Amino acid sequence: MGDLAGRWRELNRAYWDERVPVHLGTAFYGMEGFRARPDSLKGFETAEMGDVRGRSLIHLQCHFGRDTLSWAARGARVTGLDFSPPAIEAASRLATELGLHARFLTSDVYDAVAAVEGEIFDIVYASFGALNWLPDITRWASVVAELLAPGGCLYLAEFHPFSFVLDDETGSRVTHDYFDEGPEASGGPGTYADEAAVTEHNDTVEWRHSLATVVSAIAGAGLRIRFLHEHDHTFYLQRQSLECHDGDIYRHPEGAPRYPLTYSIRAEKA
């Protein structure tokens, strides 16, 4: 594991570079529907963020920009940032195709301040499946604070770390150590969006940051936490025990004990 951990950035970038064209063609991302109506945001995200018209927003780890452009369609002035050149190229093409104004930059998230040349934003946005690719959440939170204008806010929506300590079949037995935050080897052939996809770059490194680690990092960066909300639903089959509702929303079976599957945080800079 030591050798893999030391190469985390190289391995993870190769993994994501290869999967950009795969993801663009999968039913999971539903790009045909997105092109007809560019809105991939979750209901609680838009409700919790409110009106973003005219506000500047930077989306960290934006992949190929689907959520970034969803905020643009709602009137925000958006910048998307990702370390994968193919992802940024795809995002730029998609923005042009949809006629949405957006800026996309290739950069490691830890280098975001330099990438935007010191520009500050009303909103820093990060979502689902972002933090697990970062080894240092304290440093991430510091970058977020530097990117925010006074009075600006961080909005983070993520998969809840507790949901990953339970067994896959029933979701009722603890099988992983919640306090073991990694690094851990991960990956494998294919992708969550297409398990049958033929891929070459399959080694990745991830970290399972506890909720306490994330909250403490944000507070330690000087941001005031306005809320932490935990949600009992998610947006892919995290556990085989979950049931699908409304197309892409997964919930616990009726009558089963519930535990949080996702969470959201809003924090503000004084």
Rank of each mutant, 00 (worst) to 15 (best):
5 A>K: 03
9 R>S: 14
13 R>M: 02
14 A>N: 03
14 A>S: 11
16 W>C: 09
22 V>Q: 03
25 G>L: 05
25 G>Q: 08
27 A>P: 03
34 F>P: 06
38 P>R: 01
41 L>P: 13
42 K>H: 09
43 G>N: 09
43 G>S: 14
49 M>Q: 12
57 L>R: 07
60 L>N: 04
62 C>L: 02
65 G>E: 04
68 T>Y: 08
69 L>V: 01
75 G>D: 01
76 A>W: 04
82 D>I: 03
82 D>R: 12
83 F>R: 02
85 P>F: 10
100 L>E: 02
101 H>I: 07
110 Y>N: 02
112 A>T: 11
119 E>L: 12
121 F>M: 05
124 V>W: 04
140 W>D: 08
141 A>V: 11
152 G>F: 06
155 Y>K: 00
156 L>Y: 04
161 P>M: 15
165 V>Y: 05
170 T>Y: 03
176 H>Y: 13
180 D>N: 12
182 G>N: 13
184 E>K: 15
193 A>I: 01
199 T>M: 10
201 H>M: 02
201 H>R: 15
203 D>R: 14
207 W>F: 06
208 R>L: 09
213 T>W: 00
214 V>G: 01
219 A>V: 14
221 A>G: 06
233 H>R: 14
234 T>N: 07
235 F>I: 00
238 Q>H: 15
239 R>Y: 08
245 H>G: 05
246 D>S: 12
247 G>A: 14
248 D>W: 11
250 Y>S: 02
251 R>W: 04
251 R>H: 05
252 H>N: 05
252 H>T: 12
255 G>A: 04
261 L>K: 02
264 S>G: 12
265 I>P: 00
